[in-house]
Each structure stands twice: as structure tokens, then as C-alpha cells.
Amino acid sequence: MVKKIEDLNYYELLEIDPRASTQEVYRAYDRIKKVYEPNSVALYSLFSPEETAILRQRIEEAYRTLINDPKRKEYDMVLRELRELPEPEPEAQRMPTYQPPPVQQRPVVVRKPAEREPFLGNETRPQPAPSAPPPQQAEVPVPEQPRPAPLTITEFTGTAIRAVRENAGLSIRDVAGITKISERYLGYIEKEEFKKLPARAYLKGFLPQYAKAIGLDPERMTGDYLRRYDAAMER
């Protein structure tokens, strides 16, 4: 009943129903993140800065797990073991062909650093070797560190954005689910196929959404990207 903050499960942390859609997970995360900002006035005198920091970190973990389908399924299984979640019944009707969590998809992630490197090394200033450890291969839900934009990125090109997205364990489809931006446009953004993108005004609306979904600073990413867009379109 009454729970220690450390014991709240991810759904309780984000204050959502265990059946919440990806979109709802994202909205809850976006809101809760603001509540537990370091200087949030609503926390005054209740939580110490250390407690707030721990809460924030757990909120990040919760988001990264629940936003990612295989990870979420795995987590739900753990919760069911702990009897914190009821067994799903109506699910069976909606998904007649039940399949175990697609653990096999993981190896795809492992290839990523190699793909990413040339682009990230492609910067004007000399960069230290990519310091981020290679993405975990294991199925164990290892909490990822709260992840500032990788240090090697100095400009948010389409490729850099894609790298950040993949690093967060999100597919284009996940992001489309969160932002309601179509997968096609998300793809064009990443590939910098500027001509195929809708008018600049729409793009300007899409970018901050996209940035937030993958945990980037919306203003910076939008600014960077539009600068490249404008330069290319002028030519």
C-alpha cells in the first residue's frame, strides 16, 4: 500500500495505468520530469536535492524501459512475478498469435556503433574517441545512465539524430508512436531528404517533438537542424 519511493514501480513513478499506450507513457514522462526538476517549487521542503536526483534518475529509467516494447514486456513479466501486475487476459483476444518478447532483435543494435562512427567523427574539432560504451547486448534490464547527448556530437545532423535515437533503444516506429509524426517524415528527417519534407513551418513543429522523444534539448536540435535545412534549400 504505502510504498517507499525506491519501491515504486515504473508505472507508479510515472503515475500511469499499466495499460498506458506509448503515447501516454511519453506524455506522463514529459510532465513528471518537469515536476521533479531540481528547482521545482512544488518539492520545496519535502525532498532533499539528493532525493530529487535519485527520483529523476528513476524516472529516466522508467521512461526508457516503458517506451521500448521488448523491455517493457520483460519488465511487466517481472512485475507479474512480484504480483504487482495482474495477469493479462483480454490481451489474448487482441493478439491471437502471441509471441515471446522478440529478444532476437537485439543483435541489430550491436552493429550500430560501427555505422555511427564515421558520421560522428566527421566533426570540425578533433574529438576524443567515442566514450559511450557499446550498447548492452544482454537481456537483463540494465538501467541506462541518464544520458546527456553524446559528447561527440557538436551539431545535430540527421545522422547524429538517428544515432541518438538508436542509442536510446528507440525505433523510428517507437518515435512515430510517441510523437504522432509519420514514420516516413521521421525517416526523411534523419536522411536529410529536405525536398521530401513538408513545408518548413511543419518541420519546425516536428523537430522539438522529435527531440523531446529521444531526450535531446529541443531548442538546440531544432536550431541546428533548421540551419542545415535552410543552407541546403538555398542552394
Binding site: 519511493i5 503515475e15 510532465r31 515536476v35 512544488a42 519535502l46 525532498f47
Partner: peptide, 16 residues
């Protein structure tokens, strides 16, 4: 206005 929701959340997490 948002602060009201934040207080609600903080009360829930801190006081239960």
C-alpha cells in the same frame, strides 16, 4: 496552475 498538479504528485510520492 501546473504547480497544483506537481503538489499532487509530490504528496502522492512523499506522503502516499
Amino acid at each position: 496552475i501546473q504547480i497544483g498538479f506537481s503538489i499532487k504528485s509530490a504528496c502522492n510520492k512523499y506522503f502516499g
